[in-house]
Design a protein around this nucleic acid. Structure first.
Length: 836
RNA sequence: GCGGGAGUGGCGGAAUUGGCAGACGCGCUGGACUUAGGAUCCAGUGGGUUAACCAUAAGGGUUCAAAUCCCUUCUCCCGCACCA
């Protein structure tokens, strides 16, 4: 179309122009500046899959608004970006396409960087980091050594989660409902020797310090709390016939007299010993073999029927002296507590079901107040507190009291001890895959496990390796890599061939951003002191446990050893919702993907950003709408046309106005301008409600259109309005704002402008409209002077003709006056009823 | 089962401290401009017999006043899931 250029904003040209300009001028480069207050804005760095998806766009758009906004407030803003470069997809892609994981990853990084640049994000690209770069993973390995030297990294043999499809072990956190979080295959247990991080040492602090994080969503804190799963109770020693002690963990020591059986996990080491000379031995072994064959899901699903078998052995209750049968059952987990539990059917629903199924005795030891449980007929366990019965010397006590007394008693008598248990397990960090940071450990026949000396880092990942997933680390086949010499004795030795879980790499990247090119250390402590902690972290809720818990853990470890000055990495956390289409998460299999590249190509980055920020508040899921994208595009053009339209009037308008002597139309306009400044600022800073911030800007735009029709005076107000509009838009639609700022003859970059201050005087109103209610229903509106109160408001309200009419003949019983809001007249039918 | 969140027009969503429900946008309707309109501008748009009234998942309660607070129920989403 011929006149397209005159009526339409040419985003293609403009966006490219400013992106280039920003890059040339280093507009978003930052350095430590002690004079300025810092603000560290961080979005979760992506896995370089090669393609930006809408979830990324949302994440980065939000982060960019925050970063640009704080920059305009005068903060020294660190807004970095990087690449979580290691991981399985690179290997899978490599196998499919016959391209080296490294090559694939770096090509993806390049591609994604271009895509991000096309979004106009204000990153300091000179600080980007890639976890798969030797200059980075060298320090990931260093981190491993720190943990190793402090006894927080250790190797042990244990039944671990194994994904047959990925051919590697998984951390507990990577197993979702018994399936691999990546490929959804059933996870099986394998007995393997693996490296762990002792995160359980930090369980209590990770739990308690959640209180230090008021800027985190409750939901995330609760998820972490549940994951850590602290429970207070006691361990009590039962004695088997053969004299062996069997400890059980219980949160309810007060029910100890109600124990009618005990259950061991099938893998419990004492089982074999107990059954050896029993007639039941064969059947028990058979049962155990069968349970072990069950997959993780079958085994641990709550729906799975509880199954057990009697071992033929008995144990003695340390308090009552009673003999109870010892069973083995599928629902008892070796990994939790002691791998043995006491069965108290009367007071635990699960135990009751088990007891009824196998006809085990039920014994009531706590009676609810004012009720009497019948052990023979009860179908629901009673888990609440009550009065102790059938419990020897503790009879008659309140069970809550008895819980403490019994704990004290067993402790005194050496029958057990108070104990806290956690669901959190140590973090399994080794992986039998190629594309990860090699674990810096050497095995020497004489010296044993020897850590690689720090000066020998990095342990380089060899390039020339066949990396088919075989279940063993591909590095085993890399002779050159495998063979080395012992750093201690110089004898021939071999390297550890497992690589680190990629989640290790991402536990500290926010520290690396502070001094990304530091070659002598993982990070420069001074830079870290300046920038840390992260003021605002933004990302998907799917990392609520894994990444966020691990990062908190590593931060605490580094803090404890004096390496960093903060013990929590992220002060404020924003978890954004998903981007949906047709009510479902965008995915290849569903075919409901909208490609960011396409949207940016057809509408421009500003439109993409604006739509995504406007469509929903950030925590909520966002439903994609092509029509709403059109709307955002239309708005951008509408702003552009407004500015083109008024350009002649405002371009060289240097006129000053005396705010007090302006006319009503001008004053009204200025009120809207300053109200918008306030709203947009509050919405970003206090509430993260970008959608309402955008709507306020739209209202300002509408008001300015309206204003231009009512005034043609060059009096400075129009210029104030338009330049404010442009500045307020800058964090949301940076290219448009920069272009228009330039067009109206603004000085420098719009992104270097100070966020406008609210002129309190401009907000003031002489008059406003309030509601007049009768019995709580709005019946009229009336203009009154601002600040009018009580009786004066009442008088005005009662003087309204419509009001008079409506309360005619009724009795006014009460008047509620809310200044500047409303008057509520409470009336009732007059007692002396008049005929109509 | 336990824990958390949500439910408001045809749609996405506003309502910040209990104080005028539906801001803003989409869609729709009408008009203007026009050779044309899938551009733009203007006006209208919860329901309703157009004025009473009814409307924030349903029902009840507190209050002068409730989307907002309390109780009961329903639906959807997310997390954990035999943790003793």
């Amino acid at each position: 179309m011929v006149n397209d250029l005159e009526t339409k904003y040419n985003f293609r040209v403009v966006e490219k122009k400013w992106q280039q300009r920003w890059e040339e001028t280093g507009a978003f480069k930052v350095t430590e500046d002690p004079e300025k207050e810092k603000y560290y804005c961080l979005v979760m760095f992506p896995y370089p899959s090669g393609n930006l998806h809408m979830g990324h766009v949302r994440n980065y758009a939000i982060g960019d608004v925050v970063a640009r906004f704080y920059k305009m407030l005068g903060y020294n803003v660190l807004n970095p970006m990087g690449w979580d470069g290691f991981g399985l997809p690179a290997e899978n892609a490599a196998l499919q396409r016959h391209i080296h994981p490294s090559e694939w990853t770096w090509a993806n990084i390049k591609k994604m960087r271009e895509q991000m640049k096309a979004m106009g994000l204000s990153y300091d690209w000179s600080r980007d980091v890639a976890t798969c770069h030797p200059g980075y993973y060298r320090w990931t390995q260093w981190l491993f050594l720190q943990l190793y030297h402090h006894g927080l990294a250790y190797k042990k043999r244990q039944a671990v989660n194994w994904c047959p499809s990925c051919a590697t072990v998984l951390a507990d956190e990577q197993v979702i409902a018994g399936c691999c979080e990546r490929c959804d295959s059933d996870v099986i247990k394998k007995d393997l020797e693996q490296w762990f991080f002792r995160i359980t040492d930090y369980a209590d602090r990770l739990l308690e310090d959640l209180e230090k994080l008021p800027g985190w969503p409750e939901k995330v804190k609760l998820m972490q709390e549940n994951w850590i799963g602290k429970s207070q109770g006691a361990e009590m020693k039962f004695t088997a016939e053969n004299g062996k002690e069997i400890s059980v963990f219980t949160t309810r020591p007060d029910t100890i007299f109600g124990v009618s059986y005990m259950v061991l996990a099938p893998e419990h080491p004492l089982v074999e010993e107990l059954i050896q000379d029993k007639a039941e031995a064969g059947k028990v072994r058979e049962f155990i073999a069968r349970v072990k064959k069950q997959s993780e899901i079958e085994r641990t699903s709550a729906e799975t029927e509880k199954e057990g078998i009697f071992t033929g052995a008995y144990a003695t209750n340390p308090l009552s002296g009673e003999k109870v049968p010892i069973w083995v059952a599928n629902y008892v987990l070796l990994e939790y507590g002691t791998g043995a539990v006491m069965g108290v059917p009367a007071h635990d629903q699960r135990d009751l079901e088990f007891a009824r199924k196998y006809d085990l005795p039920v014994k009531v030891v706590i009676q609810p107040i004012g009720d009497n449980l019948d052990a023979a007929t009860m179908t629901e366990a009673y888990p609440e507190p009550g009065a102790m019965v059938n419990s020897g010397q503790f009879n008659g006590m309140d069970s809550e009291v008895a819980r403490l007394k019994i704990t004290d008693y067993i402790q005194e008598k050496g029958l057990g001890e108070e104990k806290v248990n956690y669901r959190l397990r140590d973090w399994l960090v080794s992986r039998q895959r190629y594309w990860g940071a090699p674990i810096p450990i050497i095995y020497c026949d004489d010296c044993g496990v020897v850590p690689v000396p720090e000066e020998d880092l990095p342990v380089l990942l060899p390039e020339d390796v066949a990396f088919q997933p075989t279940g063993e680390s591909p590095l085993l086949k890399a002779e050159e890599f495998l063979k080395t010499t012992c750093p201690k004795c110089g004898a021939p030795a071999r390297r550890e061939t497992d690589t680190l879980d990629t989640f290790v790499c991402s536990t500290w990247y926010f520290l690396r951003y502070c001094s990304p090119r530091e070659s002598e250390r993982a990070f420069d402590p001074e830079e870290v002191r300046y920038w840390m902690p992260v003021d605002q972290y933004i990302g998907g809720v799917e990392h609520a446990i894994l990444h966020l818990l691990y990062s908190r853990f590593i931060t605490k470890v580094l803090y404890d050893h004096g390496l960093i000055p903060v013990d929590e990495p992220f002060t404020n956390l924003l978890t954004q919702g998903m981007v949906l289409k047709e009510g479902a998460k965008m995915s290849k299999s569903k075919g409901n993907i909208v490609s960011p590249e396409e949207i940016i190509g057809n509408y421009g980055a500003d439109t993409a950003r604006l739509f995504i920020l406007f469509a929903a508040p950030p925590e909520r899921d966002l439903e994609w709408s092509d029509e709403a994208v059109d709307g955002a595009y239309r708005f951008i053009n509408r702003v552009w046309r407004l500015v083109q339209h008024v350009l002649p009037e405002i371009k060289d308008d240097k006129s000053q106005f005396d705010a007090d002597s302006l006319g009503t139309v001008e004053k009204d306009m200025r009120r809207i301008i300053h109200r918008t400044i306030k709203r947009v600022g509050d919405d970003i800073k206090k509430r993260f409600n970008f959608n309402t911030a955008v709507s306020a800007i739209m209202e300002l735009t509408n008001a300015l259109y309206h204003y231009t029709e009512r005034t043609n005076k060059v009096n400075g107000v129009l210029r104030e309005g338009v330049s404010t509009l442009i500045i307020l838009l800058a964090p949301f639609t940076p290219h448009l704002a920069e272009e228009l700022w330039d067009a109206i003859g603004g000085e420098g970059s719009v992104h270097d402008q100070k966020w406008p201050e609210v002129d309190q005087d401009a907000l003031k109103e002489d008059e406003l409209s309030i509601a007049v209610q009768i019995n709580g229903k709005v019946r009229d509106h009336v203009k009154i002077p601002v600040g009018l109160k009580g009786k004066d408001m009442e008088k005005v309200a009662l003087a309204q003709p419509r009001v008079k009419e409506l309360i005619e003949g009724k009795e006014l019983t009460r008047v509620i006056c809310v200044p500047d809001k409303l008057v509520n007249l409470v009336v009732r039918e007059s007692k002396t009823k008049k005929a109509k």
